[in-house]
Deep mutational scan, measured.
Amino acid sequence: MAAAAAAGAGPEMVRGQVFDVGPRYTNLSYIGEGAYGMVCSAYDNVNKVRVAIKKISPFEHQTYCQRTLREIKILLRFRHENIIGINDIIRAPTIEQMKDVYIVQDLMETDLYKLLKTQHLSNDHICYFLYQILRGLKYIHSANVLHRDLKPSNLLLNTTCDLKICDFGLARVADPDHDHTGFLTEYVATRWYRAPEIMLNSKGYTKSIDIWSVGCILAEMLSNRPIFPGKHYLDQLNHILGILGSPSQEDLNCIINLKARNYLLSLPHKNKVPWNRLFPNADSKALDLLDKMLTFNPHKRIEVEQALAHPYLEQYYDPSDEPIAEAPFKFDMELDDLPKEKLKELIFEETARFQPGYRS
């Protein structure tokens, strides 16, 4: 834990890192770190609560700039109880001085990944967590956004079992017609939660990839272990087919990539493993919904509104309290091709509203 900075004593240090967030945020305490930044909790002297502050230093890398800009653009436009918001952003007053960006968010005690390492969940908890994931996802999908990296560590939890989806750095506007060349190379989302079509096709992607990830998360809540822990690309596919069985001819016809289709045709026939054999203690309604989410063919996979209306979630289902976005989200430009200098300018502009004396 960093010592509390005395008023006016300059930035606090946390594990050798400068955290320049005073005077409003003090009493910093280390939480963890990701690929390009550290997260601390801090005391907000204005709202009198502890908050989470993520320090991001992305400006050396085009990919990190892209992810940072995506996350900020999306989260500043989203407003939903099951999606983490941005409360404040701290950065230098000029673009030349801006080396880091500090993002202030609600402090959540833990995440689903940490929880599943230590606790076996009751059916009631599984049901409530799944409902909140789908409630947040309904809003995301209504904005025409794909999260693309749903996994237990991106689901934040607090002691009252509130759940918030975080990390929109890989999110995209849904565009089933656009052929994202190089899709697989830039697709760094965790393999275990990846839909089979991501490994088999490169053309376009749809909201059904997020539903697949939610199915993987439900299976993990039922058993405290990942359902498809593939060691590499082909191993991942083999794990999936080992449980779902061989795809039907109709399902194979959806695979545009001939090499991928021929690979699947070359494999020995596998039978589907019954879900109640894998999860003998699970609620039968939970397994019915799991089956509809972990469907090989993305066109037959359940959609988020149908999933919310499934009998497993009937005690929570309330369409009048499951809000959607006001308007579909649009990125003005494809960020993939922009140089990091341009992305830095866009991050600077996007964060201006939090600067003292800002006038829109």
Rank of each mutant, 00 (worst) to 15 (best):
N271C: 09
R261V: 10
L112F: 07
T26K: 07
P176F: 09
I89F: 14
K151L: 08
Y205E: 09
S248A: 08
E12P: 00
L241R: 00
E81N: 14
G16V: 15
R91K: 01
I243F: 15
R225Y: 01
I227A: 01
N47K: 15
L278D: 03
E345M: 06
P247G: 03
I256A: 12
H61P: 13
A4F: 00
L338T: 02
F228N: 11
D235Q: 11
P280I: 03
C40T: 10
Y139S: 11
E341C: 01
L346R: 04
A143L: 04
D175H: 10
D179G: 10
E345F: 02
L28T: 03
P93M: 03
L28R: 07
E71Y: 03
K151G: 04
E197R: 12
I56V: 15
R277C: 10
F168D: 02
V173P: 02
V49T: 09
K340M: 14
T206A: 05
A143N: 02
C166M: 04
D337P: 03
G16I: 00
K55V: 09
I31F: 14
S142Y: 05
I56L: 13
Y43A: 12
M108Q: 01
A2W: 00
S57A: 14
D124T: 15
C40W: 13
D20S: 08
E186Y: 05
D337V: 14
R172Y: 03
P196W: 06
G230V: 14
D177P: 07
K342W: 01
P311A: 08
L338I: 07
Y30D: 09
E349P: 01
I140Q: 09
Q17I: 07
G10Y: 09
S360P: 13
P226C: 05
A6T: 13
D288S: 01
I83L: 09
A42I: 01
L267I: 08
E345I: 11
D321W: 02
L156Q: 14
L28W: 02
P339V: 11
R353Q: 10
C161T: 01
E96R: 03
P319M: 06
P356S: 13
Q17W: 01
L134F: 03
A352H: 04
L343F: 05
T159S: 15
N224L: 07
S360D: 06
L155M: 13
Q306W: 05
R194M: 07
K259Y: 10
L184S: 11
A307L: 07
T26W: 05
E345W: 11
S153M: 07
K55Y: 11
Q306A: 02
G22K: 02
L115N: 00
F354E: 11
S248H: 02
T94K: 07
K151T: 13
N144Y: 15
P23M: 03
M333Y: 03
L264C: 01
E305M: 01
G204K: 04
N276F: 06
M293W: 01
K54F: 03
E71K: 15
L264I: 08
R359I: 11
T94R: 11
P356W: 01
K48C: 08
Q315G: 04
T26D: 07
G242Y: 01
S213E: 08
K340C: 02
A282T: 12
T181G: 04
R24I: 03
G230P: 02
Y193H: 10
R135P: 08
P226W: 02
Q132Y: 04
A307K: 01
P319Q: 15
L287G: 05
S208A: 13
I209R: 09
G34T: 04
S29H: 01
L200Q: 14
L237K: 03
L252A: 07
S153K: 10
V145H: 02
L116T: 01
I90W: 00
T26H: 07
L146S: 11
L222R: 11
F183I: 15
M293A: 02
P152G: 00
V39F: 14
T68I: 12
Y193C: 00
R79H: 03
K117Q: 13
T351A: 12
T185P: 15
R79I: 13
D162K: 04
F296P: 02
L157S: 03
R191N: 06
E345K: 14
T110K: 06
R70D: 01
C166N: 11
G37L: 03
T160N: 10
K117F: 07
K99V: 04
D88F: 05
D336Q: 01
E186D: 13
A3R: 11
L258E: 01
N158Y: 13
K54N: 12
V145A: 00
K342F: 04
T26V: 05
P152S: 12
A195I: 10
L338V: 05
